[in-house]
């Protein structure tokens, strides 16, 4: 009486579940408001270390868009400034980097 799945279907299901479980983690966009602790300027990028204001966790992101790099170079953005930050957690590249304060 017991129904048994055909072996080909069982194998396919097993393979699909393995692929699902073992596939590499998807890159996700992380969003936070954070305070800049350190800025390291390089020729075409900058590494910025920030502290998440909610969790106090430290993150290090790469900034490589020209507009933000220019602001870091001429010190329109400084250590101690609070930033609205979005970055790709797989690459660590900042996709949004803006000071929270205005005039």
């Amino acid at each position: 009486m017991r129904k048994v799945l055909p072996s080909s279907i069982a194998l396919a299901l097993f393979t699909a579940s393995l692929v699902t479980i073992c596939s590499p983690a998807q890159a996700a966009e992380v969003k936070m408001i954070a305070t800049i602790e350190r800025i390291e300027l390089k020729e075409k990028s900058a590494t910025v270390t920030l502290k998440d204001t909610k969790s106090d966790k430290h993150v290090s992101v790469t900034v490589n868009d020209d507009l933000t790099l220019d602001k870091l170079r001429d010190k329109r953005i400084l250590e101690g400034d609070e930033i609205r930050l979005k970055y790709d957690d797989a690459t660590g590249v900042a996709t949004y980097f803006r000071k929270t304060a205005g005039c």
């Binding site: 220019d70 602001k71 001429d74 329109r76 803006r98 000071k99 929270t100 304060a101 205005g102 005039c103």
Partner: peptide, 15 residues
């Protein structure tokens, strides 16, 4: 960038 130093951050934040 000279103009946007002020004109970008008016009203309480960037843009």
């Amino acid at each position: 960038k000279n103009c946007m130093v002020c004109h970008d951050s008016a009203g309480g934040g960037a843009l």
